[in-house]
Write a protein that binds this DNA or RNA. Structure first.
Length: 456
RNA sequence: UCCCCAGUAGCUCAGUUGGCAGAGCGGGUGGCUGUUAACCACCAAGUCCGCGGUUCGAGUCCGUGCUGGGGAGCCA
């Protein structure tokens, strides 16, 4: 007999004579002559209620079942006599697969996120974390669906890299040398014969493929060795990076906006029950926030206008706003949460504060960069039109202290058939935070890696 | 890395002016009820984060370290 998922059973409206479920006991209520068992198999937020009558031959063992124990239950799917659920299983046999000791840390009560982080191997067994990781799975699918519908090709860019990619942030060193084997200036003795790191972005590789396959995207892990201790940073996270040939900054912004709207709609349509949990218990304003994002176009604003708005706002900021300086969290938050109260795309940033690969505008002061800011999270997307003119690219590298010879292949892509092209990076975990209202990034990734913390 | 806050039973927390270590939940035992984070009674449960100091006496005051959280910077 084939096991059925609880998700499938609870979707049924009809009764059934013979069903088999396998799952874990979430809670149990004993009566004199029977017990109510609530079983969850992870396929669905809700448990299925099982009636275990005392006539079952192993009833004594059943009454001793503990939370977290694994069981296989065969029985009839019938209309429930009680309130609170439409259907329930009248058990004909209950096989105890394994009994969890009473030291099982998850209780029938609310646990704090901080505590659950210390038992990250067990937290997906809770309602909230089960919901998060079902949504995470569905969001991954939605990303592929979005791009596939638009004819993008999925590219697997390297995780181990030899270039220090745009010099963005600290990187994790990859080496096969033991700590006692000293590196003598060059890396001749090391595995790859040169300095090697974990990637901080697949962008440079993705650009090569955009200039071959047209529209491409990457979706994979990314690593930053920054000593960041905030609720929005982890050392290993996932990033989505589309890259489009024959596309300017405006097309880039169009795609970013369309993508965020698609992802929200897909999750609301396909994870309704799980999302409800967050709207009810995690963030009461979640539905308003999400509906608000989908309701109208994102506001698009040049960096210089943002500076004007901030300077004229009359607000006292800890950091001064000045053209040529990067905007701080407090500035971004003011724009998206107070002033406009909707997602804002800032574009055309001063060239001094942006990397070499962003296309220099005709004003010679700004580059064709854009950041998508959303209320509550801040920056969720960073992107740009890429510098497609080889001479300008080399000039910009030199200005910013990069060595063009290290990027010979990147520069060569501009030598042969160069075209305007654009792309961006979307933080996958930050998108999950937006969709669920979860405030700490450590709670939307299975086993978070942060400075000083790699227990699981 | 910097600033602020916290660490007491398995979990969430209370603990007064420095004077015998507490509650709810969870766990165990028994009872009761088509129950819904069920309910009632009883029982067990502690390196008060570590180290050092002040004091007749420290969970409480001081120093220091560790861990966690919030914020900042860096960014996705």
């Amino acid at each position: 007999m084939k096991r059925e998922k609880i998700y499938q059973l609870l979707k049924k409206s009809s009764q059934a004579d013979n069903v088999l479920i396998k799952g874990w006991l979430r809670t149990k209520r004993d009566s004199k002559n029977f017990s109510f068992l609530e079983i969850n198999d992870g396929s669905y937020l809700k448990n299925i209620q099982v009636i275990a009558d005392c006539t079952l031959d192993n009833y004594t063992e059943i009454t001793k079942l503990t939370i977290g124990s694994a069981v296989a239950i065969r029985g009839k799917l019938v209309k429930s006599q009680g309130k609170g659920q439409a259907l329930e299983i009248q058990a004909q046999s209950i096989e105890i697969i394994s009994l969890a000791p009473e030291s099982y840390p998850l209780q029938k009560k609310r646990h704090t996120d901080e505590f659950l982080r210390t038992i990250a191997h067990l937290r997906p067994r809770t309602n909230k974390y089960g919901a998060i990781f079902r949504i995470r799975s569905e969001l991954s699918y939605a990303i592929h669906k979005f791009f596939r519908n638009k004819g993008f090709k999925y590219i697997h860019t390297p995780i181990i890299t030899g270039s220090d990619c745009e010099g963005a942030g600290e990187m994790f060193r990859v080496t096969t040398l033991r700590p006692d084997q000293k590196i003598k200036n060059d890396y001749a003795e090391d595995f790859f014969g040169q300095e090697t790191n974990l990637t901080v972005s697949g962008q440079l590789s993705a650009e090569m493929f955009a200039l071959a396959l047209g529209d491409v995207y990457t979706f994979g892990p990314t690593f930053r060795a920054e000593n960041s201790n905030t609720s929005r940073h982890v050392s290993e996270f996932w990033m989505v990076e589309p890259e489009m040939a024959f596309c300017d900054l405006e097309g880039d912004m169009d795609l970013a906006e369309e993508m965020i709207n698609f992802l929200i709609t897909h999750i609301l349509d396909n994870c309704a029950e799980d999302i409800q949990l967050f709207a009810k218990f995690v963030d009461k304003k979640l539905m308003t926030t999400l509906d608000n994002i989908r309701a109208g176009a994102f506001l698009r604003l040049p960096y210089s206008d943002a500076v004007d708005i901030l300077r004229k706002s009359g607000r006292k900021f800890e950091y001064e706003v000045e053209f040529g300086k990067d905007l701080q969290s407090e500035h971004e938050r003011y724009l998206t949460e107070q002033h406009f109260k909707k997602p804002v795309i800032l574009y055309n940033y001063p060239k001094e504060i942006k990397p070499f690969y962003m296309r220099l505008n005709d004003d010679d002061l700004t580059v064709a960069a854009m950041d998508v800011l959303v209320p509550g999270i801040g920056e969720i997307i960073g992107g740009s039109q890429r510098e497609d003119r080889p001479e300008v690219l080399v000039e910009r590298m030199e200005e910013l202290g990069q060595f063009p010879e290290d990027y010979w292949w990147y520069i060569e892509s501009r030598k042969y058939g160069t075209v305007p092209h654009s792309g961006f990076g979307l933080g996958f975990e930050r998108t999950l935070m937006l969709l669920t209202g979860v405030k700490n990034i450590r709670d939307v990734i299975p086993f978070p890696r942060t400075p000083g913390s790699i227990e699981f």
